[in-house]
């Protein structure tokens, strides 16, 4: 194997610590002050990116691209942190990143961007993305993207990928009951929607950042507007999942005791 071409599709979401309040904008639902809220790389896409970088590091000749569809200025901010974590080349598409856009339009824009990457070779291509999203996950974008790229070997809820000696790839997908389904695919092209994977978030490395930025900044400058919107979708109602915060500050509590209390609390419902 002379290396993989790993294209990770992932965008930004508002920092989960922020107050997320759905409101109705001119073209459908949006989050209140969304553009002004600090953003982070969608955590699911983040897992995909770090797994991609790990695979690339272990397979000489590999390269990672991050295709990101989002407001250019916000993506740039997020890249200042993400760009320091692992080596990759950014392909930026300027467009909305809210959770309310149409999955078909998003997938179409992403597919066009992947196809337009110079030197892309289907025989080496692995498309990664998040199985879920920290914003409204349509649950369909990645599958449609795969179809548009004519990649039919698709895996969702992936936690592990292991290249085999014969060039095939062993893939662990989440199934019910905390179990994994093991599949083997002959090789690229394949599409993987990542769950959490097994890797911690890489630490920031300014040296990696400085190297990445030579590509990231020009990519952001030349990013073109993507025609992505809500399409024909109509939202009847938008609400946040019900959340209840019952925070107590307790120090020096044994872990068994914490676990017991959590179980007791869950059992109440």
């Amino acid at each position: 194997m002379s290396g993989y071409q790993i294209v990770v599709c992932g965008s930004i979401v508002p920092d989960p610590l922020q107050t997320l309040e759905p409101v109705t904008g001119p073209s459908g639902p949006v989050l209140k002050n969304e553009l002004m809220l600090p953003a982070v790389l969608d955590p699911w896409a983040g897992h995909a990116l770090y797994e991609a970088a790990n695979l690339a590091a272990k397979t000489p000749g590999s390269k990672v691209w991050l295709v990101s569809l989002g407001p250019k200025a916000k993506v740039q901010q997020v890249m200042m942190a993400v760009g320091q974590k692992v080596p990759f080349e950014l392909v930026a598409l300027d467009g909305p990143a809210g959770g309310f856009v149409d999955a078909h339009e998003t997938a179409a824009a992403l597919a066009d961007a992947v196809k337009a990457i110079p030197g892309i070779d289907r025989t080496k291509l692995l498309v990664f993305g998040g199985w879920e999203s920290a914003s409204r996950g349509a649950g369909a974008t990645l599958q449609i993207l795969g179809e548009r790229l004519e990649i039919h070997d698709q895996f969702q809820g992936v936690d592990q990928i292991a290249p085999q000696a014969d060039g095939s790839l062993e893939i662990l997908e989440r199934v019910e009951g905390g179990q994994h389904q093991i599949s083997v695919v002959a090789g690229p092209p394949a599409l993987l929607g990542w769950a959490t994977g097994n890797l911690p978030e890489p630490r920031n490395n300014p040296q990696v950042g400085m190297a990445n930025m030579r590509g990231i900044m020009p990519a952001l400058q030349k990013s073109k507007p993507a025609k992505v919107g809500t399409g024909d979708l109509q939202y009847l109602a938008v609400t946040l999942p019900k959340a209840q915060r019952e925070t107590r500050v307790v120090k020096n509590m044994p872990t068994d005791e914490i676990a017991r209390e959590i179980v007791e609390w869950i059992s109440k419902d």
């Binding site: 809220l37 200025a73 901010q77 200042m80 760009g83 320091q84 920031n204 300014p206 400085m210 930025m213």
Partner: peptide, 26 residues
């Protein structure tokens, strides 16, 4: 909202210094 990084970068004049923006994040 409370002013974010974009606002600070403009006020403190490092919008065009990605090396400094990365340093801040890190």
């Amino acid at each position: 909202t409370l002013p974010g990084d974009d606002v600070r970068q403009v006020m403190w004049r490092f919008s065009d210094r990605y090396d400094l923006q990365m340093l801040v994040q890190s």
